[in-house]
Amino acid sequence: MRVLVDADACPVKQEILRQCKARRIPVIMLIDTSHELHDGYSTVITVDKARDSVDLKLINLLSPADVVVTQDYGVAAMALGKGAMAIHQSGTLYTKENIDRLLFERHLGAKLRRAGKRAGNTPKRTREQDRAFERAFAALLDGVSEVRHAD
């Protein structure tokens, strides 16, 4: 098992690193050339700055035993399609039961933006949101680890 992170705008990189280090789980952070990242633990892969370049590289590296951290519903859907697990930076686990609804909501938001409307403001991230992610991510890693060890 590895954790692959769509790291360009990920606000929970430190939480991911802390938990993966403690469990000795490899982490791959994917960024484009407009970002820099050096954390001393993860493997950082930098790709050209092009539309969806990080997303495509992440999906190409993905194996069914992996966990993906992304806020992109499309990336999450592809990860699920490859048999991997995916989690949002809020701590919401992407599942086959919720991904269709999330993709549809993304489609509606894009449609509103094209029509010149705004779907709403995103409030500033709170420490409680970080803690919610940490709890959900720990449960996911521990659950995945138990399943993998049971084989």
Rank of each mutant, 00 (worst) to 15 (best):
M1G: 06
R2K: 14
L4F: 06
L4V: 09
L4I: 10
A7M: 13
A7G: 13
A7E: 15
A7L: 09
A9G: 15
C10D: 04
V12T: 06
V12P: 01
K13S: 03
K13F: 03
Q14H: 10
Q14Y: 09
Q14F: 11
I16K: 01
L17K: 02
L17Y: 02
R18C: 06
Q19G: 05
Q19L: 13
C20T: 01
A22P: 08
R24Y: 15
I25Y: 02
P26D: 14
V27H: 05
I28R: 01
M29N: 08
I31N: 01
D32K: 08
D32S: 11
T33D: 12
S34I: 07
E36K: 04
L37C: 12
H38P: 00
G40A: 12
Y41G: 12
Y41T: 13
S42G: 13
S42E: 08
T43R: 11
T46R: 06
K49L: 15
K49Q: 15
A50H: 15
A50C: 14
A50F: 14
R51D: 12
R51A: 14
S53V: 07
S53M: 11
V54E: 03
D55P: 08
K57A: 13
L58P: 04
L61Q: 07
L61W: 09
L62G: 06
L62C: 06
L62W: 03
S63H: 06
P64L: 00
V67R: 04
V67I: 15
V68R: 00
V68G: 03
V69G: 03
G74K: 03
A76F: 09
A76S: 14
A77W: 02
A79L: 05
G83E: 00
A84G: 04
A84T: 02
A86S: 12
Q89S: 15
G91D: 02
G91Q: 02
G91K: 00
T92P: 05
Y94N: 00
T95S: 02
T95V: 07
N98W: 03
I99N: 01
I99G: 03
R101A: 12
R101V: 09
L102T: 04
L103N: 03
E105N: 09
E105I: 08
R106L: 05
H107R: 15
G109H: 03
G109K: 06
A110P: 06
K111A: 08
K111D: 10
K111N: 08
K111H: 11
K111V: 10
G116D: 06
G116L: 11
K117D: 15
K117W: 15
A119K: 05
A119Q: 04
G120Y: 00
N121G: 11
N121E: 10
N121C: 07
T126F: 04
R127Q: 14
R127N: 12
R127L: 10
E128I: 14
E128T: 09
E128R: 11
E128N: 13
E128C: 09
Q129N: 10
D130R: 13
D130I: 12
A132G: 11
F133V: 00
F133N: 00
F133S: 01
E134F: 07
E134V: 11
F137I: 00
F137Q: 00
F137T: 01
A139Y: 01
L140C: 03
S145E: 15
E146T: 11
A150M: 14
A150F: 15
D151H: 13
D151G: 13
